[in-house]
């Protein structure tokens, strides 16, 4: 019984290379921003760029953008658990 080998159409060489170039540029931007700025803003910008980068990795390299909806929805689970953990931890830290 042969089954289809993939449940989705995978992106080609070109998409991967463009994603890689974007990731390298974003890394350079992060380094530049943290060199110029000081304080809380640079941390926020650095984390924001890191999240865009991990979004690129998830969506293109890890094929999440090409997967069926189930996988996209399932991904919300760890995000939600993580957000709740942050919330409860900081409730404890701030109102102790």
């Amino acid at each position: 019984m042969e089954q289809r080998n993939t449940g989705h159409t995978a992106p080609g060489f070109k998409t991967y290379i463009i994603a890689w170039i974007a990731l390298v540029i974003l890394t350079a931007v992060t380094i530049a921003v943290t060199k110029i700025d000081t304080g809380a803003i640079s941390i926020l910008v650095a984390l924001l760029i890191a999240s865009v980068k991990s979004g690129l990795i998830l969506y293109i390299f890890m094929h999440l953008g090409y997967e069926r909806r189930f996988f996209k929805l399932a991904f919300l689970l760890p995000v939600l658990v993580f957000a709740l953990s942050i919330w409860f931890t900081f409730l404890d830290v701030w109102y102790r």
Binding site: T30, T34, I43, A50, K53, S54, I57
Partner: peptide, 28 residues
Amino acid sequence: VKLENSGLYWHLVDMIWVYLFPLFYLIT
């Protein structure tokens, strides 16, 4: 699928480093 799943693992390790790098090396 074996190759793809190993790839998923590798990309996740890369993704974690994407956060480790600014948080440890880029505190100015």
